[in-house]
């Protein structure tokens, strides 16, 4: 799924840190924005998880997601709070979906933006699937840990709709970023 074999570990970790930093930064920026409420975050930070997935593979994406959730929660002071567990469950759902989809790697010679995963989905499709999984896991976690009765499922269509929209937006953004990045190899040389 990636040019993994081609790049040395230090370089790989550097790239992951860049993406993770971008993800955390976006996450904190979003948290600072007022208005939308605790449930309706645009989740733009997930864009970087996607970029990591398509450039570096599933494990890298998992790393970026995990770092984002942990560092983000510590920075915002929500570490180990119910919000934190919601974030973790959402991230786990998304990452697991990515893992499933990455089963069959497509032609590694293709620039990352054009990669296809299991089922022929591209960047936007993967983003949409991961986003749906993310919100579903969060709602289940909220139902289990916090709310306790089935009333929350009445709100499910709204949550799913939001996730559908942000999934597509994130996918498009990730695509654009990947297109730009495609001009460089993973080692930083211009193609």
């Amino acid at each position: 799924m990636s040019d993994n074999d081609a790049i040395p570990q230090p370089r790989r970790q550097l790239l992951i840190s860049y993406l993770a930093a971008a993800a955390v930064g976006t996450h904190l920026l979003e948290a600072a924005l007022p208005g939308l409420g605790p449930w309706f975050k645009p989740g733009l930070a997930n864009t970087f998880t996607l970029v990591a997935f398509f450039r570096l593979g599933w494990q890298a994406a998992a790393g970026v997601a995990l770092i984002r959730v942990l560092v983000g929660s510590i920075a915002l002071g929500t570490f180990l709070s119910p919000t934190f567990f919601l974030s973790v469950s959402g991230a786990m759902g998304a990452v697991l979906t990515l893992g499933l989809l990455s089963g069959r790697s497509s032609c590694t010679a293709e620039p990352s933006a054009q990669r296809r995963v299991l089922g022929g989905f591209g960047v936007v499709g993967v983003s949409l699937l991961a986003s749906m999984a993310h919100i579903s896991c969060q709602v289940l976690c909220a139902w289990f840990l916090i709310i306790g009765h089935a009333g929350i499922f009445l709100a499910l269509p709204w949550f799913l709709l939001g996730a559908w929209a942000t999934g597509i937006i994130n996918g498009l953004l990730a695509f654009l970023i990947l297109e730009r990045l495609a001009r460089f190899t993973l080692l930083g040389e211009k193609r």
Partner: peptide
Amino acid sequence: ATTLSDRWLILLS
């Protein structure tokens, strides 16, 4: 940015 599968997915979801 979207493949055929993607577009079907968007519609179906």
